[in-house]
Design a protein around this nucleic acid. Structure first.
Lengths: 147, 147
DNA sequence: ATTTCATGTAACTTTTATAGTTACATGAAA
DNA sequence: TTTCATGTAACTATAAAAGTTACATGAAAT
């Protein structure tokens, strides 16, 4: 399984942006995340389409949050990123003729659905504000943050 | 994410083997699964090391189940295959210096652990015999099985 | 107006995990 | 001693995610 770290990256970005007064450029975010500005733009583009962030071009342009972190859950972010697969296990054949394989698929699907539903419910219960206060509880200075 | 279908394949194989009296060769299983014998051997090798199947070389050799399906759960099979990652979401950085990213990782981990635990518990509750009876309930002839 | 800065986006390359293939060694039965 | 089947290493193919390059678009500053 080649894994997906977009949600992790998006949460990290959004929490950093919450500390900023001015719009932040993709370049600045990219160097803090040790990646390329285009990676940031692609990811943020998805969030913008779902009303989570806004962008502005030109001088003093960049990205800003479009709502308070209290009104944003991990589920919102996950869905804004496209809501891709949560589990790394898949069926070997999608619509098999073999009845045995059909039963295997159905049985696995049942378990998968439950696990995915639990994870999504947990995501829905976690606001970015809750995450932020968890951070502020641990540290009261701006030290130990990304460059 | 490039996904992992080994569990799906293993279950399909084991359930077909349950219908066989004689040892089945990797070649036969491979053509039923539309894949290569070596793929079958690699997967079955893992199961053999965990006492789920046995192998015999030479004439009339092949693979046989080493215990009844009632004593085999999906969890057993999953673990015998190496117990790889269940979720496709990962952290962007494994041990980040940034406190924000640490908090993101910890928060995600909490949700991930719960979802994985649920899935494993569901796997532990499902025996291959239960899966088999689910199949026999649907069909009483050997039709609609793999070639 | 025109220069500068920043996003928007398409096309391409790199990386990495899974799956599939080839080739050959090992060992058991006929 | 031949045949059949597993055991395994090394290699190739496929696909998804991430990163990169190049350039178009548009807004602000001069």
């Amino acid at each position: 399984m080649k894994s997906n770290s977009q949600l992790s990256l998006a949460l990290h970005l959004l929490l950093h942006m919450a500390d900023m007064e001015e719009p932040v450029t993709s370049g600045l975010l990219a160097s803090a995340m040790n990646t390329n500005p285009v990676v940031i733009r692609r990811l943020m583009g998805g969030l913008r389409e779902h009303g989570i962030v806004q962008s502005r071009k030109g001088h003093h342009g960049g990205w800003t949050l479009s709502r308070p972190l209290a009104e944003l859950t991990l589920r919102d972010v996950y869905l804004a990123l496209g809501g891709g697969p949560l589990l790394s296990l898949t069926h070997r054949t999608q619509n098999p003729d073999c009845l045995i394989e059909q039963a295997v698929n159905e049985t696995l699907d049942g378990a998968f659905r439950d696990a995915e539903a639990l994870l999504l419910a947990r995501f829905a219960d976690l606001s970015l504000a809750a995450l932020q206060s968890r951070i502020h509880a641990a540290i009261h200075s701006p030290a130990h943050l990304c460059a």
